[in-house]
């Protein structure tokens, strides 16, 4: 076995393991009870994709794939931040509304 074959076997095994791990994380994304679980799983799948792209650039000997990985990191971060800010705004609005309701009830009780 030459050294190139050994490297390609090693990287293939690593890529297959990453594929299995991504599938298992996707299960958590599907069954996740809250929105938080889903965003978390997608973030983790993004990290694994970045690792896979880095390994793939070693396997194919193409260094421009790393530029793709850099852009992927930024875009997955952007997706998480935008989804999170949407849900935080929604949750704040609901919390403020429920606070007003409870305050009104207390005032009625005191009167």
């Amino acid at each position: 076995m030459t050294i190139d074959q050994a490297y390609s076997y090693l990287f293939f095994v690593a890529l297959i393991v990453f594929g299995i791990l991504m599938a298992v994380t996707l299960i958590r994304c599907i069954i996740g009870p809250s929105i938080n679980d889903r965003i978390l799983s997608i973030n983790m799948i993004g990290t694994m994709v970045v690792c896979s792209i880095a390994i793939l650039s070693g396997l194919l000997d193409e260094s421009w794939l790393l530029d793709v990985a850099l852009v992927y990191v930024m875009i997955s971060f952007l997706a998480v931040i935008i989804l999170a800010s949407v849900y935080i705004r929604e949750g704040r609005r609901k919390a403020a509304a429920s606070d007003k309701e409870t305050a009104g009830k207390k005032e009625e009780e005191s009167v």
Binding site: N36, Y87, G91
Partner: peptide, 8 residues
Amino acid sequence: LSQIEFYT
């Protein structure tokens, strides 16, 4: 994500 959890 922890902020989402805190608010929802």
